[in-house]
Nucleic acid binder design. Structure first.
Length: 957
RNA sequence: GCGGGCGUGGCGGAACUGGCAGACGCGCAGGAUUUAGGUUCCUGUUCUACGGAGUGUGGGUUCGAGUCCCACCGCCCGCACCA
């Protein structure tokens, strides 16, 4: 690392050094704060300044993903996206736009609590300290945030509204006819006035109050249910499906997760599955993220079919009801509730043993698709509804309880998994489709309906065979689509099933048995009915306590019971309230919300952070986030640019979209989607080094040798590669960079090292390149010895003027497209040119100097402000117009054209920019170099002459 | 297995709709300043048996391919017995 702390007498006193940078940067940061430079005016509400709004152009809402304030502080990888959004926000302000740009903290949740437990400090204290440290580090970076809008999810003034939104969701139901959420009171009225029948047909008035309550509760978008949930003893809490990794462990802490039935809060996100899926088409998001959301929602069309059995109907979900005639057995998941009733005495031992083995096997083992199919016969049969056939019912672990109904009809000729299972256990495989000859040819088998010759199941369009009963025939139909449609209508006509849509997405488990989260705005009456608290009783503040640690268990103790820290606070739990029928005793809900709750709507609070009457003023929301139908007719509204990592592809982005849609349905926001455009930034990676024990050593202490080997304290270490962070001991803190070079250099380096969406390796030794560039830029207008300004009012020479305007043209385009790396490259070229061209006179034309400062301002705002001030301006550079290129200077009078001979460049000629084909040919053939390259051949003898005006000429011999 | 992305100097990376491959930066080499080191500045820097060759490999389309098409190899990401 460069070391500028050495007091060297030969460094000119006014050189742009780290010390000077620190002075400039901190001065301007103070000025911005004192002068409210980055306050963005609102059209209404507490931050209203309508005149200022009217004075600006288009609005623009630029958002970074909500950070968690880590106790470890920032490393240089964290601010990559923040710098990108800051440069963009600053560029757009210089285009005259009213830019909303701020930063808050997602401070509730497990990591904050775990950190508190480790340090023994109350999470409120550590969280505040962490936020303060992060604010300091971010401020030092010079981000142009509106400080008034910074919020933390842990502020009671913030989570008051998180709780309020919960009450909105609780007091709403989803109307499938209108495809939207509606207040639960409207459902109650509909039941009461008979316009909507109750499920069991009784009139509303005939139901007891408790029954009415329970019925309504069944419709709420937030509801309590006794259902299988993911219990994580190691964390002492339940977690959501989205927080469980593919190998059945917790996303946080990597503890085993067990499926258990428990009473928990759920959010009915499944009601929104179709809209969450459809509206992805309206979003300017990467294909990768929308695909992940589509996969997670996992919509598939098919049918539910009932098979009668001794234990009652077994319902299966199938995407291929057309193959029902080929269903020769059934398979249930080992955990299926009907297994016990279906198992005959002589199969009891085998079934019990299989279920025990399946339960013991890890999810990872069960997901290994390469192993052979296993399973056990229950001893019972079920009735295939299309032909009355008695089909054996098996259990096997290739059927998952968590998908569909946990039971399948097996069609061995048409499904590869069922095919393998049937082969393994010697079950019948009747053909119900006649595969095309080509299918057999590809598999080098003679066409036959005898499936014993088939190497695998057939999937696709082909004529049906053996597929008829008295009232239905699919035989001779040739398309699966027709087959499905015909079968579906037969199924519903005969009461055997119906067409349906299945989703992989399931309702969102919303409660956590932890301390550090938003308390539920819910109390229970003496009959254990939940009641939401009225608005005036919010927030329900998190009670003070020293025992904030959750009760955790042996991570493998599946049968432990969750115990929320709030359960212990009986003074808080028991409460006397008047909820409209006189003071009564209630019990508070002792769960807290998951970390995702606070980040589900924070972007809305940024809009109107101090509003005490509403979570956001509707006019303010409409201004910043309303649909931009001027851009496209079906624009969904939302944040104009949202920048963050891919790790939130399903969790945060799905939950947040869901809440936003509920708020939209209930009329609280005008935007259908929270984030119109999403940009995924890459990560900063760094070398990490392990010793021969495999332990990571401090990367800053590792020495590289000429032969490419690395040592740490003299012993050889191995180079690895990974995300920058504490665990790999390869983190570089921004503070180190501020000390060595200053914030502007750090900003510039991070933007210059590659495209924003690419992950790239951090190289501390490369940072100096951008530092030198800023020194050169400084030197083009400040004398290093005297500090005096070295600009004059001369006119730039033609070459400089043209380069200047070409640079303006490209830099503007690149910044607008978030391609800061190429914008920087162009600026470097310009500064290098100016550095050379001014050496003779020692002066830089003022117009050139000012234009360079304006172009650099979004990237290196402190240095730009300083130079702008020294150039004699008294207002901030932040709201100056970004330079525009003079079109006349973008076209040259003469251009150099390469002349290729057979595709290889052999010569170059200068031609007038507007020369036509004939002129160019004449110039080309008159050129000595060309003559030599074509060996004096007669132009008329050439096979071909291709002239692309302004580009190149190709001569084909 | 399915889906998506990516392979360019010693390194990070440029190259718009097919049209001068290697912009810009690091590193390296030489030079200037300096007692010296460091800093800063200047010049050069894809390889080369100096004919040429060259964007993971092999083929194709084209006057012309890093860019388009086909096959393969390698790496990364997501999903994964989803019925």
């Amino acid at each position: 690392m460069s070391d500028d702390t050495t007091p060297a007498s030969d460094i000119p006193p006014h050189r742009y050094t780290a010390a000077l940078a620190a002075d400039i940067e901190q001065r301007w940061q103070d000025t911005w704060e004192d002068e409210h430079t980055f306050w963005a005016p609102n059209p209404a509400g507490p931050l209203a300044d309508p005149d200022a709004v009217a004075a600006t152009g288009d609005k623009l809402f630029v958002l970074d993903m909500f950070p968690y304030p880590s106790g470890a502080g920032l490393h240089v990888g964290h601010p990559l996206g923040y710098i990108g959004t800051d440069v963009y926000a600053r560029y757009q302000r210089m285009q005259g736009r009213n830019v909303l740009y701020t930063m808050g903290f997602d401070a509730f949740g497990l990591p904050a609590e775990q950190y508190a437990v480790q340090t023994g400090q109350h999470p409120a204290i550590t969280t505040d300290a962490n936020i303060a440290n992060m604010r300091r580090q971010l401020r030092r970076l010079g981000l142009s945030h509106d400080p008034r809008r910074s919020i933390s999810t842990t502020d009671p003034e913030y989570y008051r509204w998180t709780q309020w939104i919960f009450t909105q969701i609780f007091n709403a139901w989803y109307d499938p006819e209108q495809r939207r959420a509606r207040p639960i009171s409207e459902l109650e009225s509909a039941f009461a006035n008979g316009s909507r029948p109750t499920p069991d047909g009784r009139t509303w008035g005939d139901m007891s109050g408790a029954e009415q309550r329970r019925l309504l509760d069944d419709y709420r978008l937030a509801y309590v249910s006794e259902a299988p949930v993911n219990w994580c003893p190691g964390l002492g809490t339940v977690v959501a499906n989205e927080e469980v990794t593919a190998d059945g462990r917790s996303d946080r802490g990597n503890f085993p997760v067990f499926t258990r039935n428990m009473r928990q809060w759920m959010m009915r996100i499944t009601a929104y599955a179709d809209r969450l899926l459809e509206d992805l088409d309206l979003l300017d998001w990467s294909e990768a993220i929308t695909t992940m959301q589509r996969n997670w929602i996992g919509r598939s069309e098919g049918a539910r079919v009932d098979f009668a059995s001794p234990a009652g109907p077994i319902t299966v979900f199938t995407t291929r009801p057309d193959t029902l005639f080929g269903a020769t057995f059934m398979v249930l998941a080992p955990e299926h509730p009907l297994v016990e009733a279906l198992t005959t005495p002589d199969q009891a031992d085998a079934v019990a043993e299989y279920r025990r083995a399946a339960a013991a096997a890890s999810d990872l083992d069960r997901q290994d698709t390469s192993r052979d199919k296993t399973g056990v016969f229950t001893g019972s049969t079920a009735t295939n509804p299309v032909n009355g056939a008695q089909v054996p019912v098996w259990i096997a672990d290739y059927v998952l309880m968590g998908y569909g109904t946990g039971a399948i009809m097996a069609v061995p000729c048409g499904d590869q998994r069922d095919f393998e299972f049937a082969r393994r256990f010697g079950l019948d495989i009747p053909a119900i489709q006649r595969p095309p000859d080509a299918w057999f040819a590809d598999r080098e088998v003679a066409p036959s309906l005898d499936t014993s010759t088939w190497p695998e199941a057939f999937v696709g369009d082909a004529p049906y065979v053996n597929s008829s009963n008295d009232s239905l025939s699919l035989n001779d139909m040739t398309s699966v689509r027709d087959g499905i449609a015909t079968m579906n209508s037969w199924l519903s006509a005969n009461g055997a099933g119906e067409a349906t849509v299945n989703y992989k997405l399931r309702d969102w488990l919303f409660s956590r048995q932890r301390y550090w989260g938003e308390p539920f705005p819910i109390v229970y009456d003496s009959d254990s009915n939940p009641h939401t608290l009225p608005d005036e009783m919010l927030p329900v503040t998190l009670p003070e306590t020293d025992s904030f640690s959750p009760r955790t268990f042996d991570p493998d103790d599946e049968f432990s019971e969750p115990e929320s820290p709030l359960d212990r606070l009986s003074d808080w739990v028991e409460v006397t309230l008047d909820l409209g029928d006189g003071p009564r005793t209630y019990r508070r809900d002792t769960n807290v919300m998951p970390q995702w709750a606070g980040s589900c709507w924070y972007e809305l609070r940024y809009l109107d952070p101090t509003n005490t009457d509403a979570f956001v003023d509707p006019a303010v929301e409409h201004y910043w986030m309303g649909p931009r139908t001027d851009i496209r007719p079906d624009h969904p509204g939302g944040v104009d640019l949202y920048v963050g990592g891919v790790e939130h592809a399903v969790l945060h982005l799905l939950y947040s979209r869901f809440w936003h849609k509920v708020l939209f349905d209930l009329g609280h926001v005008s935007s259908r989607e929270p984030y119109a455009r999403l940009f995924n930034q890459g990560y900063i990676l760094a070398n990490a080094f392990t010793d021969d024990r495999g332990i990571y050593v401090d990367a800053t202490e590792v020495v590289e040798h000429d032969d490419g080997s690395f040592t740490h304290n003299g012993t050889r270490v191995t180079r690895e590669w990974g995300k920058m962070g504490k665990s790999l001991r390869n983190a570089v803190s921004p503070d180190e960079m501020y000390d060595a070079y200053g914030a502007d250099t750090l900003r510039l380096y991070e933007m210059a090292m590659g495209p924003l969406d690419a992950s790239r390796p951090w190289e501390t030794r490369d940072v100096v390149g951008m530092f030198r560039f800023l020194q050169r830029l400084w030197r083009t207008m400040v004398d290093e010895d005297t500090g005096e300004l070295t600009v004059d009012d001369s006119t730039p020479d033609d070459e400089t003027a043209r380069l200047l305007h070409r640079t303006i043209d490209v830099v503007g385009t690149e910044m607008a497209a978030l391609r800061f790396n190429t914008a920087i490259a162009k600026l470097v070229e310009l500064v290098n040119h100016v550095t050379k061209s001014r050496q003779a006179s020692g002066r830089t034309p003022r117009t050139v100097a000012e234009t360079m400062v304006l172009m650099a301002a979004p990237l290196v705002p402190h240095l730009a402000e300083e130079l702008w001030r020294r150039l004699g301006h008294v207002t901030s550079v932040a709201y100056c117009d970004f330079p525009t290129a003079d079109p006349a200077l973008l076209v040259d009078d003469e251009v150099e054209m390469p002349v290729q001979v057979n595709g290889k460049v052999r010569a170059r000629v200068m031609v007038p920019a507007d020369a036509d084909d004939e002129t160019i040919r004449a110039i080309v053939f008159a050129d000595d170099g060309v003559q030599r390259a074509i060996d004096g051949a007669d132009p008329a003898d050439l096979r071909k002459v291709i002239v692309v005006p302004g580009r190149m000429v190709n001569l084909v011999l």
